[in-house]
Simulated assay, not measured.
Amino acid sequence: MMKEKTKDWYEIENVDQIDSPALIIYQERLKENIVSIVDVVGDVSRLRPHVKTHKSDEITRMMMEAGVQKFKCATISEAEMLGNCGVKDVLLAYQPTLIKAQRWITLIHRYKKTAFSCLVDNLDTVSQLSDAAVKNGMVISVYLDLDVGMHRTGLRPDELTVNLYKAINRFPGINLKGLHAYDGHINHPDIKVRKEWWEKAFKPVFALKQILINRGHKCLTLIAGGSPTFAFLTGQDNVECSPGTFVFWDHGYLQSIPEQKFRPAALVISRIISMPGDNLICLDLGYKSIASEKELNNRVFFLNAPQLKMIGHSEEHLVAEVPEGHHWKIGDVLYGLPFHICPTVALYENAVLIRDKKMISTLKITARNR
C-alpha cells in the first residue's frame, strides 16, 4: 500500500475554495510569533509593536490579550484602528503636517481613553502643533525623532539636539515625552557585524539621553529598534522596543536575521493561468498583489516551486521560467513567501485565515484605508 504524502505546513486542504491571488494568514503560527516576541523582550511593558505590518484590529486584539498595551503606527488610519481597539498608548511614528494635525486632534478627542503621541524634529512643526493644541484646549504629546542612519527624518543626536529638546519644552500645549530612533538600515545577516553597526549608531543616542537626564529631564523614554535590532535593546533602561515584521515574518528577514526564531505566518497564493512556452508559466500575481520595490527575483519566493526564475512582472501577471521536464499545469496553486511582507499586506482589503490547514474565515486589513 502506497504511503500518503505528508503535506507541507503551508498546504491548505480546501484551497480550491480560495480565489487567487490571496493573502493567507496561518493562525497557529501568528499566535506563536506573538508569544515569542513577548518572551524575547521579557517585560511586556517594554514592548511597543509596530502595526504597519498587519494593519488589523483582530491581530491587535490578539496582542492585547498577550498583555501588550502600547503600539506604534505609521498612518492616521492605523492610529484610528488602535483607538477603536481601546489601546492605552499609541505613537504615530510620523510628523503631522498642518492638515494631518487637524485629523490627529480629531482622533485625540474621539478616543479619550487612549494616550496619543507623535514625532517632531523641527520647531516649525512643534509651533504648529502648539498653536493647534492651545486653540483646542488640549495637550499634544510628542517624541523627538533622531536620525541614526536612515537619513529620511530626524536629527543627529548631538549638542544641537540638546538645545532643541530644551526649546520644545517651552511651547505651550506640548508634552515632550522622550526620544525616538528607527534603525531599519542595520540589517546585516551576521549578528556580530549587525551589533557592531548598532552600537556605533546608538552610542551618541545613549550619550544624548544621559545628557538630557543630567539636565533634569528624568522621565525620558527612548523608543527604538526594528526587527533586526530590537533584541539588543532589551537590556537598556527606559527603552521600548518597536519591531513589527515579527508578527508575520518574511523571506527577507529569514535570510538577513537567521538567529531569530519567528516563523513565516503569512503567504500569498497564486495560480498558473497560462503556459506561454515550454519552459514558461504565467501566474496571477501581478505587482498589484505582491510588494515590488525590490529587484524582480527578490519579490516572492515560492515554497513549493523554489526553482522558479522570474523573468517578467506587470500589473496582473508574473511570468517565470521553469526547468525542462517540469510537472506544472494550468490551475496549479503556488504558495509564495513575500520578501517584504509589510507593503504586500497593504495591497489586500482582506486576508484568508487558516487553522488546522483549512480556511476558517476572512480577516479584514482594517487600516489599509490610508
Rank of each mutant, 00 (worst) to 15 (best):
R29L: 12
R29G: 07
N33K: 01
N33W: 01
I34H: 00
I34V: 12
V35G: 10
S36K: 15
D39T: 14
D39Y: 03
D39S: 13
V40Y: 07
V40F: 07
G42V: 06
D43E: 12
S45P: 01
R48A: 14
P49C: 07
H50K: 02
H50R: 02
H50E: 07
V51P: 00
K52F: 01
T53L: 01
H54L: 02
K55D: 02
S56V: 08
D57M: 13
D57R: 13
D57L: 10
E58Y: 02
T60W: 03
T60F: 00
R61W: 01
A66K: 07
A66I: 05
V68W: 00
V68F: 01
F71C: 07
F71P: 09
C73H: 03
A74Y: 00
I76K: 03
S77T: 09
S77R: 07
E78K: 06
A79V: 08
A79L: 03
E80G: 01
M81K: 06
M81I: 04
G83A: 00
N84P: 01
V87T: 12
K88W: 00
D89L: 03
D89W: 01
V90A: 09
L91T: 08
P96H: 06
T97H: 13
I99M: 10
K100F: 08
K100V: 03
K100Q: 15
Q102H: 07
R103W: 03
T106P: 04
T106R: 14
K113N: 13
V120Y: 00
D121I: 09
D121H: 11
N122D: 15
L123R: 08
L129V: 09
L129N: 05
S130G: 08
S130V: 05
V134R: 08
I140D: 07
S141D: 14
V142L: 09
V142T: 13
L144K: 04
H151R: 15
H151F: 12
R152H: 12
R152F: 00
T153C: 11
